[in-house]
Design a protein around this nucleic acid. Structure first.
Lengths: 343, 343
DNA sequence: CCAATGGCTGTTAGCGCTAGCAGTAACAGA
DNA sequence: TCTGTTACTGCTAGCGCTAACAGCCATTGG
């Protein structure tokens, strides 16, 4: 675009790039006064304010936050980095976050990593390059580079979901290791002994891994170990739950309890057992994890533990917004919901 | 902060605010050269490039995109405005979008409206104020102010999901009216006559509304009308499906088909009917809408129509990225999946 | 020998906005 | 008359970066 004129682009310019100047010219006051009116900051006389608002409205002016952020060194954005949007748990965390951010002037921006550490690193880099006011990140495990970036960013960092580890700044979550242990103890106490596990293949789902570790730890303490295990990846979780359950029941017919790493596959397993006419929870018990509301509609309620998702989102947002001054770790305690699938 | 020195903040400054200048000083070249290296733009000699990268790495420098965007008048962001994240349909659209944006240098940013027009308007305003390269918005219905803002933004706007209406710029989606009609025709052809509808209460779910309109239109053409209808809002969709189905069966015992506005409540209804030992699809048929993968794990497959979600996301992203040059409307055609619940 | 070229690096002038003042006008009090 | 105060409004100087251009040096061709 050579020889672009130095005058402001006006009508001919296809990109309708209105600036404060346009509003200021239209309303006959300085840019500064327009800025004050639009941000509701400082004293402006009522008639002036009216004229400015009127001009902005009729022009259809939308402020340029890029310029505003650069000038004021303030960005009203909070980066939220989560592994996935499609498993019902993170949308609920988001709800909690948005809810508490409401009215603080802060705005959540989501990034999704698909459980890939490198992807997480680049999402974090990308977000930090927009200089947000804070970051909320699922999990305590990050690449070395990501951890360094976060630590040096000079903004509050809240790692959520998990507290079994060392946070960069703050952590809000539950102990998945303890959750696994608790579930195992309840299962053992109910008299089940031949216990199988089904879960995701994903190497980077550290929280599922910690739950399983806690679970096996508690089994070991009772002199037990898993009699079978099965992993899946991809596809419809409900269907995979059915398939894995079929495989396990087939391979290990005398299994008497099925522990699932999440409710969705657990629900699939439950539907399968009911289809087969198995006596649940007499002959065989089942349990999942998360406490997703989906379970409420099932013929029988699956035993589960809620992951305090809403509350985690709320607390994390409060820390970023500065409405609470927390310790390093905020631990929440999931409650075991026995449902109808543990005798 | 009075008397803040004019020199750059260094160690004492709590906010570790590294700039290009810091990297340029550390590597002994000009800021411009650092900028060129970090953006991979223009010629820089190999040794210089190495030294710069090394310096940036050890300092932990993260570029300031705010300044970069302001200077270059380019923002690699695409705003995506959707009503909800928690019903499985929009996450899949997002997947399609991210997939096609991969490698274009563009980055999706999501905003959620909860089906509230005013909320949508403010989300759009907020996003436009960051001067994105394009916007993707669910639906064709917006407030007057939102429509004006979008039309004047001077960037490509793609309205998705629906094509029954007039797009601002481009639209990618299906005809929900036609989808409703098609389903009704299939139901009538299968010999069902006493048909009931169950759906959401939401006044602003225009697409569900259009489906129902098309559905009733086709019924009317066959001399039929709905024998019962039931609406819900909030709560677990699966459970609501059960409850509404119970209510309808109770109130209108001779109903022979249940049409649901989405698969989740349809699945709840299906589970209820199976629980009750009803002959599906002989005595009573059922159908939903969306084609969510959840259905694959159900004991019986619910009849549905897929909403082409992935494809919609992909096409919309391609339009924004400029990799296709589309007409005003891109219509996709959902396929009717009869499943096991239409005889 | 000079001009022309290409590879590399630096300089200059903003991008659109806001913090931090510096006015200005009108009026009150000393 | 002067100073102080209140209520508003405008000016200046950047925020951190990049587009555009201007060098500089070595090499090449005439």
């Amino acid at each position: 675009m050579p020889g672009r004129p130095l005058t402001r682009p006006t009508a001919a310019d296809p990109r309708n790039t209105l600036t404060l100047r346009d509003v200021s010219e239209a309303s006959g006051v300085s840019e500064m006064t327009v800025s004050r009116v639009l941000r509701n900051r400082g004293d402006v006389s009522a008639p002036t304010r009216e004229r400015v608002l009127e001009a902005a409205r009729t022009l259809g002016y939308v402020p340029n936050k890029i310029a505003g952020a650069l000038a004021s060194q303030r960005v009203n954005l909070v980066g939220v980095v989560i592994p996935s949007l499609s498993n019902m748990v993170f949308p609920e965390v988001m709800t909690g976050i948005s809810e508490m951010l409401e009215g603080t002037g802060l705005q959540a921006v989501v990034g999704v990593t698909n459980y890939l550490p490198d992807r997480e690193e680049s999402v974090i880099y990308e977000m930090l390059s927009w200089r947000p006011s804070g970051m909320i990140i699922a999990g305590l495990e990050h690449t070395a580079a990501a951890s360094v970036m976060l630590a040096r960013a000079g903004i509050p960092i809240v790692e959520i979901m998990d507290i079994d580890g060392t946070p960069i700044n703050h952590a809000v979550g539950i102990s998945h290791r303890r959750a696994g242990r608790q579930m195992a103890e309840a299962i053992i106490a109910a008299g089940y002994r031949r216990i199988a596990f089904m879960g995701t293949q994903m190497a980077n789902d550290y929280r599922a891994k910690k739950r399983l570790e806690g679970f096996e730890e508690a089994l070991a303490k009772a002199g037990l170990s898993l009699v079978d295990r099965e992993y899946y990846s991809g596809g419809s979780a409900l269907l995979k739950g059915r398939e894995m359950t079929a495989a396990v029941l087939n391979r290990t017919p005398d299994v008497d309890f099925l522990y699932y790493s999440n409710d969705m596959i657990g629900a699939g397993g439950l539907l399968y057992c009911l289809d087969k006419g198995l006596d649940v929870p007499g002959r065989i018990g089942l349990a999942g994890f998360n406490g997703v509301e989906l379970l409420d509609g099932l013929p029988r309620k699956l035993a589960t533990m809620d992951a305090c998702r809403l509350e985690i989102g709320r607390k994390a947002a409060q820390i970023i917004a500065g409405t609470v001054s927390p310790g390093e770790k905020v631990e929440l305690f999931p409650t075991l919901q026995r449902g109808d699938t543990i005798r």
